[in-house]
């Protein structure tokens, strides 16, 4: 009887195309498209040397880029794209001090095309430094900001084209699609909890009892909470959306309601905790609460992940002899 039900579920879920096209287009693709739009708006503001508007557009770009990053699974569809996000964002991916390098570039006379030869010089992190600590109307600063934003835009376009070119692999196997999606969520949640919150709040292993707001991802521009909220909102798009068949619905079909409901509850708690936080709240109780709820979220993802390995949650025959 159980097998029969499993087969019925399988047929039903294939019938409605599981975590399928609708999700892919409405979340993954739509988020990349809006990030590209944000880069275009930012380019306009930079061209006008309008510092206020550029700073605002930068905040929007942070938010839309984090959305792309949160569901980034293109590297699993085609390994040529594994490293693409690192050309846009070097948070925790690079130890070098790009600030002093960027200062040197600003103060030198070398052509920008050769001076900014490193990938790290053209990332969102470099852009933040330029836009928020330098004088935008300054021609060289403006050119650098333009160069970086255009580079980000071109990588985002590459991502968009990559998704379109390799989307069939996502639709082909539901098992694989949900596996890579879950992997992205798990990895993203670890980084959220440990790097984006824990390191700042002094709750991570690395910075135990040494809270410091300057460690926040976008400490210079004050966009760190903005980024975190975008990440959490995107996770809600994946596991708790009323608009299309999402990952949560699939889990429920396979009788993992309890596990996915736990994840949703932890996610909702995190969203509530984050919504009341400002950039300076990492180091107080609010930061601690966010750390705890994102930690719960991570664990519940891991539990869902293990439930996919049916035999792991089963106690088998006492196979003695």
């Amino acid at each position: 009887m159980r097998y029969l039900m499993a087969i019925v579920f399988l047929v039903v879920s294939i019938g409605v195309n599981a975590v399928g096209e609708k999700f892919f287009n409405q979340v993954i693709i739509a988020n990349v498209v809006s990030a590209i739009t944000n880069t275009e708006l930012l380019i306009d503001s930079i061209n006008q040397a309008n510092s206020t508007s550029a700073k605002m557009q930068f905040g929007n770009l942070v938010s839309s880029w984090k959305k792309v990053e949160t569901t980034y699974l293109l590297g699993d569809l085609n390994e040529d794209y594994l490293d693409t996000p690192r050309y846009i964002d070097i948070f925790h991916n690079n130890n070098e001090d790009i600030k002093s390098q960027l200062d040197l570039i600003i103060n030198s006379d070398d052509a920008l095309s050769s001076a900014m030869y490193k990938h790290s010089h053209k990332t969102i992190n470099a852009l933040e430094y330029i836009l928020f600590t330098k004088n935008l109307p300054h021609q060289r600063v403006k050119n650098m900001a333009l160069m970086i934003t255009k580079s980000i835009k071109s990588y985002l376009s590459e991502i968009l084209n990559g998704y379109k070119a390799h989307q069939s692999k996502f639709f082909e196997s539901e098992q694989y699609a949900s596996a890579i999606l879950l992997n992205t969520l798990v990895g993203g949640t670890y980084k959220l909890k440990e790097w984006r919150v824990g390191d700042v709040a002094g709750l991570s292993k690395k910075f135990k009892n040494r809270p410091n707001n300057h460690r926040a991802e976008y400490a210079i521009s004050g966009n760190s909470m903005n980024a975190i909220k975008a990440i959490l909102a995107t996770q809600a798009q994946v596991i708790n959306s009323p608009d299309y068949q999402d990952f949560g619905d699939i889990a429920r079909q396979f009788k993992a309601s309890k596990e996915i409901n736990q994840a949703i509850s932890a996610l909702n708690d995190s969203i509530v905790n984050a919504s009341s936080m400002s950039e300076f709240d990492f180091i107080n109780n609010k930061g601690k609460r966010l750390y705890q709820s994102t930690n719960r979220l991570m664990k519940s993802y891991y539990i869902s992940l293990m439930d996919r390995l049916g035999f792991v949650s089963k106690v088998l025959d006492a196979d003695g002899d």
Partner: peptide, 13 residues
């Protein structure tokens, strides 16, 4: 991560 899976027959290794 979740790429871990098992080749099985009827759920058995």
């Amino acid at each position: 991560g979740s790429l871990v899976g098992i080749y099985d027959i009827l759920g058995v290794n």
